[in-house]
Design a protein around this nucleic acid. Structure first.
Lengths: 180, 180
DNA sequence: GTCTATATTTCGATAGAC
DNA sequence: GTCTATCGAAATATAGAC
């Protein structure tokens, strides 16, 4: 609390005035952080774009957003791991029941992927695996960054170049993985 | 410290007797945790197996190992994020300079991938992207688990089934993504 | 709303008996 | 090696003036 107050140019008492408790501050930060990523990403997945552009949109949006806040994924993963209840609280405070919303998105995606598989355009893949694959491929450079820095001696500019390259080739790699 | 002592059936004083400080305990836990994954994974990557079996070995080893300690990836990510110096300390205490070791592994993999690309067996891909793709695809179910539980209402057995399925299809998906 | 001062609790660490 | 008792510091939270 002391460090946060200093960074904000105020004192601890004022933090308590606004957030009541340390836990309240933590919950607020988690909500606002996760809300920077989730709606945008869901927007792409639920759009009417063709699959190729959904994939490209997802990858570009994710990498571009996180690039400007590179600690975001690690922070969200860390918080979900240590305080899974914050996820529930986040949806509650937004007045959203996540399960039916997700079920709807899942059903739409499932139909789209099935149709494309039926017509022989892509391999058969479940919507769960499709989404989680993209997420894993997009997020891993950021969470593995400390290791990349140490073992591959990647400094900041090398990491940025790695991201630039990855941003361009990842959509193609994902599409290729779906080829029949 | 209090909670850990309770869990271990001892008291705080004994923890201090063995680990001197809280930081010492944390460093020890990180070293032992990371050492459960890293050498095995590197063993697969540096083996003389053909690419197909390297991929399969990596995926199976990773999922099987982490399945029995599902918090391991989230914990390691969390610690790398908040205390990147622990990575350095880990290699130091093992008496290993990670950079040259990694450079050697990287060079070997690069040659293997180049040869396969030259002969038209696979698409051209850098060893960095090759390894980090596999890592991201293998790790993401575990770090995303709290979200899967909440939004897809996955209980423990559903998650285990998801892992079973993924363990089998992931090597094929990765291989397919490498097809020319 | 914002501050200073302070109360209260928690936590890491040590002393010393056994 | 393991324990009980306790110290001292740090952190969270509150009171009350402005």
């Amino acid at each position: 609390m002391q460090e946060i107050a200093e960074e904000a140019g105020v004192n601890q008492a004022l933090l308590h005035y606004y957030f009541r408790t340390k836990e309240g501050l933590a919950a607020t930060i988690f909500k606002e952080s996760a809300s920077r990523l989730l709606p945008a990403v869901l927007g792409v997945l639920t759009s009417d774009l063709p699959l190729r552009e959904k994939i490209e949109g997802f990858v570009h949006l994710y990498i571009d957003t996180v690039r400007s806040s590179p600690f975001l994924p690690g922070y969200i993963i860390s918080e979900m791991q240590h305080h899974p209840e914050r996820l529930t609280a986040m949806f509650e405070s937004a007045g959203v029941d996540p399960a039916p919303v997700a079920a709807g998105i899942r059903a739409r995606l499932a139909r789209e992927l099935e149709d494309l598989a039926d017509s022989g355009t892509i391999r058969r893949i479940s919507p769960e695996n499709f989404v989680i694959n993209m997420l894993g491929l997009a997020v891993i450079p950021f969470v593995a960054r400390p290791a990349l820095t140490l073992v591959l001696r990647m400094d900041d500019s090398a990491f940025q170049r790695f991201l630039d390259e990855r941003r361009e080739i990842l959509p193609g790699m994902i599409l290729n993985s779906l080829k029949p």
